[in-house]
């Protein structure tokens, strides 16, 4: 296996495009690279878990339909750091920003997790 470029992985399955769009914007504004992959799985927990495990940066996001979750490497599947259902624009941006902030070791946005 070749080395991945350090980036956040976003694994999606049947994802609502506006969710994906805003989450990506959240990451991009924080200046961390990301990669999006279409996956056959359906479960958002599994998507986020796999994305985090496989990202060099250890930070991943899963989006299934209109649900999104953010995960970090080695956190058990299902124990997402954040999970948002039917989110608005700001929530999506924040989820994306936080996956990047995890990488930059900065405090999460929307502090009172």
């Amino acid at each position: 296996m070749m080395m991945n470029k350090p980036s956040i992985f976003i694994y999606i399955s049947d994802a609502r495009t506006d969710l994906l769009h805003e989450i990506c914007a959240g990451i991009e504004e924080e200046g961390v690279p990301y990669e999006v992959r279409e996956m056959p799985v359906q479960d958002v927990d599994a998507l986020a878990y796999a994305a985090a495990e496989e990202s060099v940066l250890g930070s991943g996001i899963g989006i299934a339909g209109d649900t999104a979750a953010m995960q970090l490497r080695k956190i058990p599947k299902g124990q997402n750091i954040f999970k948002i259902v039917h989110p608005g624009r700001e929530q999506c941006r924040a989820l994306g920003a936080n996956s990047a902030r995890a990488v930059k070791r900065q405090k999460f946005k929307g502090n009172d997790v």
Partner: peptide, 10 residues
């Protein structure tokens, strides 16, 4: 064990 996310970065 992994700590709660609220402490992350703090």
């Amino acid at each position: 064990d992994a700590i709660e996310p609220k402490y992350f970065g703090s």
